[in-house]
Amino acid sequence: MREFGLIGQSLGHSFSQTYFTQKFHNLGIEDCRYDLFELPTITQFADLLARLPELAGLNVTIPYKEQIWPFLDDVAPSAARVGAVNVVEFTADGRRIGHNTDYIGFRESVRSFYPTRGEAAGALVLGTGGASKAVEAALRELDIRYWLVSRNPLGRGLTYDDLTPGILAAHPLIINCTPLGTAPNVHECPPIPYAYLTPEHYLFDLIYNPSETEFMQRGREAGAQTKNGFEMLCIQAEEAWKIWNEGN
């Protein structure tokens, strides 16, 4: 039995187990299983490895996409480029290699959603964690300039208080990379000035549960285009599956 799974701190919202279990069923694969592994701290990752020596691949989610780095033997160019890991490959010789498929998932999902490129393009990336690093890498590839937005006044970007009507008008694409709005806390949302949104805006939420977050709902009510992270989830999952099966 090949064992796969997802590690994170709180996984009640995740569709990953359902996605891969259905994939195994559809493909008639009977020797694979996918489980959720909630770890209160990343230090318990070593215990998980000792308990499940047959692990064949892992996904990594909040808040361990950066914290898992010391537990890896190497990182692929995708993870090095992003600075965060969301996929762990277990090689035949016992090495653990970190990859990032989040940026591929976001890149491909946003490509058709937000058509503007070059000087006219502009994005606000809400949050500065591992997920936002993947979004940054994708935006650079797509030639979309961006600002990071966080609560930290000493950060390298803007704060939510800095978001004027002019800044929002110059950055039509707004991407939520925070966990705000994830089930069960569905009434939460990033504190952007929603009153400044217009039908010219595009709101992309990396969250996929619920399918329409408070962030997306407020954007839709302002006439903005909205998209959740489900397609991104599917694309990054398929890229992870390719990595886990290379050479098998």
Rank of each mutant, 00 (worst) to 15 (best):
R95L: 15
G129F: 00
N152A: 09
V149C: 05
T91S: 14
D102Q: 10
L126D: 04
T91R: 11
P115E: 10
R117M: 01
I104A: 05
L158Y: 04
V85H: 06
W147Q: 14
Y146E: 08
G118C: 01
R107L: 13
L142G: 01
V85E: 03
I97Q: 10
F113N: 01
V87P: 05
R145C: 02
R151D: 05
S132K: 07
L124K: 05
L148C: 11
L154H: 14
R140H: 04
K133I: 07
V110Q: 02
V88S: 03
A92W: 04
A84L: 10
N152T: 12
S109H: 04
G127L: 00
R140L: 12
E89R: 15
A84S: 14
F90V: 11
K133F: 04
R151E: 04
L154G: 08
E119W: 00
Y103M: 08
F113T: 04
T116A: 11
H99N: 03
G83N: 09
G94R: 10
S109I: 07
A120R: 15
S112H: 13
D93H: 14
E141S: 12
E119K: 07
Y103D: 05
A134D: 10
I144P: 02
R95I: 10
E89A: 06
R117K: 07
G105C: 08
I144T: 05
R96V: 07
E136S: 15
N86R: 07
I97L: 08
G94F: 09
K133H: 13
R145A: 14
L142Q: 07
F106M: 02
A120K: 15
G94I: 14
V85W: 01
R107T: 11
H99L: 07
A134T: 11
V88A: 10
R96H: 02
R111W: 03
E136V: 14
G118P: 05
R111H: 12
P115N: 08
T101F: 01
N152P: 13
L154C: 02
N100M: 09
F90K: 13
S112K: 12
R111M: 06
R151M: 08
R117L: 01
W147P: 01
V87R: 05
E136Q: 15
D102E: 13
N152D: 15
G155H: 11
G105S: 03
E89Y: 06
V82A: 06
A134P: 07
Y146R: 12
G127H: 06
V125F: 01
P153T: 09
A120L: 11
A131P: 00
V87G: 00
G94L: 13
R96Q: 14
K133L: 12
V135M: 10
G155Q: 03
L124A: 07
V110Y: 00
R145D: 13
Y103K: 04
A121Q: 03
L142R: 06
H99I: 07
W147K: 09
S150K: 10
G130R: 00
G98C: 05
S112E: 15
S132G: 04
G94Y: 12
V149D: 04
T116G: 00
R156S: 15
A92Q: 15
D93R: 12
A123G: 09
Y103R: 04
F90A: 09
A131C: 06
S150P: 11
L124I: 06
I144A: 06
A121G: 09
